[in-house]
Design a protein around this nucleic acid. Structure first.
Lengths: 248, 248
DNA sequence: TCTTCAACTGTAAGATCTTACAGTTACGCA
DNA sequence: TGCGTAACTGTAAGATCTTACAGTTGAAGA
């Protein structure tokens, strides 16, 4: 597969409108670059305690069920790595086991029983707080280096487009929660809350009455459907409604 | 440049320990893929009102100075795009001008006067709230499609490694602010705050006294150096100290 | 054994937020 | 002219947070 071979894969992602189509494109990526299995997963910060998860699985169903049942997401070293990092992770039993927690050891061993022995995982983090990752897996005991060098750049790009496509496909269905419009003034008020200012301090900064600051923050709470200011701050920051400023 | 040609660039990033070395590697990327100029920029969420910026510029100094003086970051369409998106942006005067704000029009025109006419920009967002981007620019009026197809996958991967390297190089110097260790219990308390729970509610959930909840949240405020709970929530969420849970 | 540290607890005054009441003003658009 | 909407304002009771005081307990490591 040449470097330009990914262009049509990405176009296929952009034109996909169903999960099945996305699944097909991921399968094609696998074939093109010599992997047997893939799995895509993402976590949308609709809540901190119970976020929204999306999976597109090309893994054996039995393994997926086992994984879910045991809540392996908090053990899986690829998830742990990708949740914190921005560059791909190469993994096989040996390379992961330099940090051999018994649980991780067991996890890797069980995965291998399902034909998932080595592979590469690509993390993506979005400005809207989404965390997504794509893993490509192989039955080979040890990672095949030339294979990796081929897929490394393509996979990173592909995963970004894949997640973008997933958001597009799923947004209309299930995620109106993450599509809230805050007015300019509302964002300004919330911004100063994140800087630790009180209502009164914010009112002096924006040159409005303290009551008006409260008014805007009340509207934000209603829009976001949250019960107090702390939750509003957490949601707004996590979902990127307010971002650090660009004024130096 | 073949697809595997990026491996040594990435290795060079990983072993770099100074800004100059990083600058050199970026210049090599430019040469290898047929661009004349590059600029890397990142925004670290040390604060929402005054975040920390890092730049590695291969742009003409006169243009950089002009850009900074006019505070063009909030006008620059590549910055606006990359701050919100995860996939690369192709740009030239024509493609940007389908949305011709007078300010943007002026901006693009001025950039062209400095030999920056078209190019590609790669966004990166990290779990720690960093926003980074790398732009590769060309004097060509219109984007050269084959050139783009070559650099697209490599650029996305390169930018991730570049930002990782930048964090490594800069962390020891200037960013102890973003390296705070919260204990397990502290994170738990803060997690429930982000869910809108009061001290009393959190105390019932964690089965500890209300006073202890306050105690942990006080310690968090001290550690993060913030003045109240709202700011603590904003900082902790923005910098990824607390993340949405992985329990489904 | 001594030290350190995470985790834990109580009381109370004062600051701040939350929510309820009830409005006005300015602008764009049909 | 009427409608919708962003932005704005005042008062006040009660809930909640913040900060000050002053501690205990248990586990790990020097």
């Amino acid at each position: 597969m040449s470097i330009t071979g990914c262009t049509d894969l990405i176009e296929a992602l952009s034109s996909a409108s169903t999960v099945d189509e996305l699944h097909t494109v991921c399968s094609r990526l696998c074939e093109d670059y010599g992997f047997e299995r893939f799995i895509y997963g993402s976590r949308i910060p609709t809540s901190f305690v119970k976020p929204y998860f999306i999976f597109i699985s090309g893994y054996p169903k039995a393994w997926r069920d086992h994984y879910t049942e045991r809540n392996y997401m908090i053990v899986d070293p690829t998830v742990v790595y990708c949740a914190e990092n921005i560059t791909p992770m190469l993994w096989d039993r040996r390379s992961v086991l330099h940090d051999p927690t018994p649980e991780v050891q067991r996890f890797m061993s069980e995965a291998q029983d399902f034909g998932i022995s080595s592979g590469i995982s690509f993390p993506v983090h979005s400005a809207q707080g989404d965390f997504a990752m794509l893993s490509l897996a192989s039955e080979l005991q040890v990672i095949n280096r030339p294979m990796i060098d081929q897929v490394l750049p393509v996979g990173q790009l592909f995963t970004a487009y894949l997640h973008e496509a997933v958001r597009r496909v799923f947004d209309s269905d299930v995620l109106p929660l993450t599509r809230v419009e805050l007015t300019q003034r509302e964002k300004e008020c919330l911004l100063w809350v994140t800087e630790g200012k009180t209502n009164w301090e914010t009112s002096r900064i924006l040159n409005i009455s303290e009551r008006t600051v409260v008014f805007h923050l009340q509207n934000i709470q209603t829009k976001l459907g949250v019960s107090n200011r702390h939750q509003a701050v957490a949601r707004a920051v996590a979902q990127g409604f307010i971002q650090p400023q660009f004024t130096q």
